[in-house]
Amino acid sequence: MYNFDVVTPKTVADAVAALGEEDAQALGGGQTLIPTLKQRLASPSKLVSLTGIDEIKGIRTDDSGVLCIGGGTSHSTIAGEGSAYPALAALAGNIGDPAVRNRGTIGGSLANNDPSACYPAAALASGATIVTNSREIAADDFFQGMFTTALDDAEIITEIRFPVPEKANYQKFEQPASRFSLVGVFLAKYADGVRVAVTGASNDGVFRWSEAETALSSNFSVDALDGLSASSDDMIADMHGSAEYRAHLIGVLTKRAVAAAG
C-alpha cells in the first residue's frame, strides 16, 4: 500500500469536513477498499473512517412503515435485525463470510456500486431512497454505471430508506470464489407494481428488467415470464460466464424469485 493518514471522526459533520481535503477518501468497513489499496489501485492522501460514527448506524422503521437503515450499519446487523424486510435481511446474511459481514457496511457497498454487489439490486428493486449528509437521492437516479454513483466527492450516505414490499425475494447465483453474484435478481412486489433489479450481469452495473416488471405487474406468476428473455447486449463476459449465459441466468433467476416469493 502507498501510505496515507487515517482519521476517525465521530460525527458526520467532522467526516464531511475531513473529506473536503484534496485526495481524501471515505473508508466504510474496508472490505473492498483495503484489498484495493493493497493492490495499489488507489492512492488517497487521507482515509476518513466512518465506522466510529454512531449516528449513521442502526435500523428503525418510520411512521409509514419504511425501513430506515443507517449507512454505517454492518451486513451482520442487517441480517440479524432487518426482519421487517426478510428478503433484504437474507441478502445481507449471504454476503461474503461472517467476518466480512461484521465489518462491511451497506453504505459502503452502495457508494462503491460494484457491478456484482448484492445491495444495489435490493435498493433499486425496492425504489429505496439514498439519504446523504446533503440530500435525498432516488435509487433510480443513484446508480450511474459500474462503480459510478450520483454521490459527490465529500458526500456520505447517512441512511437508506426501503419501502417494505408485499412480497420480495433475492436469487443470487454465486460465483463461489469471490462470493459475489455471477448474476443476482432482486424482485419486489408493491401495491402499485413489481420491480425487478439485476446485478452481476451488465457492463453498466445494476439495472431494472422492465419487460419482466410489466409482465409480472399484470400477472404475478412464473408463467408470466414465459417467452421473455433478457438481451445479452452489453452483458459482462468473462472467464466465469459469457454474455449469453448471464442473460439466460437473468430469466431463470427471475422465475425462481417469483416462485420463492409465492
Binding site: V6, T8, L27, G30, Q31, I34, P35, L47, S49, T51, S76, D97, P98, A99, V100, N102, R103
Partner: peptide, 22 residues
C-alpha cells in the same frame, strides 16, 4: 483465508482487512 481472524469488540474480524488505527 481467515488465518488472521481475531475478535474486535466481541465480533469475528479478519485483522488483515482492518487498519490498526480503526
Amino acid at each position: 483465508c481467515g488465518a488472521c481472524l481475531v475478535h474486535v469488540n466481541g465480533q469475528a474480524v479478519k485483522s488483515c482487512t482492518m487498519f490498526a488505527a480503526e
